[in-house]
Amino acid sequence: MKVAYWPGCVSRGFTPELHGSMEKIAPKVGIELLELDRANCCGAGVIAEHNQELADTLNARTFALAQQSGGAMMMNICSTCQGAQSECQERLDASTEYRDLINENLAPEKLSYEKGITNKNFLWLLVEDIGLEKLASLVKRPLDGLRIAPFYGCYIIRPTERLAYREHPERDQYLEQVIDVIGAESVAYTGSHKCCGFPVITMNKETSLTQAGRHLGDAIDAGADALVTPCPLCHLNLDLQQPEAKKFVNRELGIPVLHFPQLIGLALGLEPKELGMGKHVVSTKAVAAKVAAMAVAA
């Protein structure tokens, strides 16, 4: 299946291992990525906070490029891109008059957004369009005994109405479902559906890193080997900032945080190194060692 692929700024910048691992696993799960290399930043809610029309225009531009690409739908690998883009899409799709106004802003580039694009995070696409059964059949290395704590990121779980939970009521359970299907064990803990704190990292570090620190601590206490997240911004606060976060919760931390495509990659038989797991701030060695001891089917 061909998809218009928006990797997002962070996966091309601070978390290159995310972009890299997605490219590695795509052909294995039957996705052809048509990368939107002319598209712009989704604004992460910050541009909308500054000026709604600007945010809506920039995202309508991305949607228009995706509609030109020939992909069956648009796919992202970032909860924040999903949320910010869905917010703009909600306004664009609600009013013909407003959409016309925004399309006028795009006219000099000869672009135009037509109502009703389907835009999915890879997590959603994997469960809804590829399917858990198909995924199970592709698993080469069941991650037996690996205890994984899911971390969703606010932007793909709230608000449920905008994110089409009416049609897909289990979207806030997909991580657990996938973790189970690939043979690992999903760990329940209080922080899985809470906020990583990233949006206020430059504005109130204490609020931000107390949030991150608590979730990491809770996952450790629940016995997790690693967290997994479909959001690179959550990854920044949970992994890159982890050494700092421990100061705000007064305890030792030190739990690796995997990107969602990395976890899938491991189950598909790829090696930790190929998936860029050496590029994390918190060492992933213990996870890699556990994985190395597992059998890979030919």
Binding site: C154, R158, C195, P199, V200, N204, T207, S208
Partner: peptide, 8 residues
Amino acid sequence: YDCTHCFK
């Protein structure tokens, strides 16, 4: 500026 934009 202490709101973390969590949509809760």
